[in-house]
Design a protein around this nucleic acid. Structure first.
Lengths: 111, 111
DNA sequence: AAGCGTTATACTTGTTTGAGAATAACGGTG
DNA sequence: CACCGTTATTCTCAAACAAGTATAACGCTT
């Protein structure tokens, strides 16, 4: 028996969670949503839809886009998104630790 | 911005969570899965499927059934299920409190 | 002007999930 | 033995959601 869970920030619907967090981390490294999606075995269209939806719900841009040009374009994580990522990352880490502890406390010796 | 989450106990798949917990609480009161489902605006067939699946995954019976008879029959919560409910209820309550605290700690003044 | 890798977006298909309909069996009661 | 409300079970339909496919535009480089 183990504990399973999903959590996310809600603002007019799902507005941020583990998936977007991982995706943005990779965009930061690669400066490309295309490559970030590829690394996660996610289709570009799905990644794009995801980001667009989150931006609509959050009310601010997560990516600063550039299309065309030498490298074809690219995307950078905005400062606001970067701040959210940091907040979420710390929050998420504590959650993980706390939930594990609580689970063991209540279901320590088997179900 | 608010925190949203789902959590459940996993054992060969989803084995227990808020929905089953509420359902069993009502079975306890009414001694009828039929009525318990009705109270939650859930179809009986769905409730029945749910219980059956959980029992398969948990490996023990949640309900003690009786069919036919004066009142048509009925279902009682087994002692093992009752124990699980109690454990889960306490766990769930602490989770709620802890997560709320952590959320405020990290996202206290707005997003 | 052609080529490249990117962003942008609609369309279409497939998968999961839920809900109800329908049917059967059960066993006290009157 | 008919009635009742329950448990038991399968089937089908609909809705929600996920995911891929295809196409277009962009702008720097050569």
């Amino acid at each position: 028996m183990k504990l399973a869970y999903k959590l996310w920030l809600d603002h007019h619907g799902k507005a941020f969670g583990d998936g977007p967090y991982e995706l943005l981390k990779r965009v930061k490294k690669t400066n490309s949503l295309h490559q970030a999606a590829f690394q996660m075995s996610m289709s570009y269209s799905k990644a794009w839809r995801l980001i667009r939806t989150l931006e609509e719900r959050l009310g601010f841009a997560l990516l600063e886009r550039k299309t065309g040009g030498i490298s074809g374009g690219g995307s950078k994580v905005t400062p606001e998104a970067s701040r959210l990522m940091k907040q979420y990352g710390q929050f998420r880490k504590e959650i993980e630790k706390t939930l594990t502890e609580l689970f063991h406390k209540h279901f320590g010796q088997g179900l």
